[in-house]
Simulated scan of single mutants.
Amino acid sequence: MPVAVTTRWLAIARRHPSAWLLAAQLLAVVLYPALDDTAGGRAALGMFGMAVLGLALWVVQRSPLGSWLALLLAIPAVVFSLAGALLERSALVTTAQLLESLLYFYTA
């Protein structure tokens, strides 16, 4: 890709970070039915969810308080998600999803 095109897309992303977050969430909704049937698909969705969490953190990075609150929700969400996947405990996964939903609500 030429540098000018890349610079243009980065400028658009900086001006409208919530649009990118919405697009990522819509992509997750579209991918979910196709990938949820297998363990590998669920792992891929989990990794995609972590990337979306990173995007959500980028969106709320407008103030120091916003960043701290987002991190207080995101870090435990990642820890519970990984622990739930490794230990195969649905309660941990549910807790991670609750924290993720709070983070998305805060971002909105």
Rank of each mutant, 00 (worst) to 15 (best):
A4M: 05
R89S: 07
L72W: 12
L103Y: 01
E100F: 10
H16P: 00
D37A: 15
M50V: 12
R42I: 02
V78A: 10
I12Q: 10
R14K: 14
A39T: 13
V3R: 14
V78G: 02
T107G: 03
P64D: 05
L103Q: 00
G66V: 07
P33W: 12
L55K: 01
A51G: 15
A91S: 14
L45C: 02
A74E: 04
S63T: 15
L31M: 13
V52E: 13
G46D: 11
L73S: 00
L57R: 03
V79M: 04
G66C: 05
L26H: 06
R14L: 08
W9N: 09
T94S: 09
W68V: 14
A13V: 03
A108D: 07
G66S: 05
P17L: 04
S67H: 10
A11K: 12
L10F: 14
Q25I: 15
G54W: 11
L21A: 07
T6L: 12
V29Q: 12
V29M: 15
A51H: 04
I75E: 00
A91R: 10
L82N: 04
G84H: 03
Y32G: 03
V60S: 00
A39I: 02
T6F: 12
A19H: 13
V78F: 07
V79F: 04
P17S: 02
W20N: 03
W58E: 02
M47G: 13
G66D: 05
V78W: 03
A24D: 05
G41Q: 00
Q97Y: 08
L72R: 11
T94A: 14
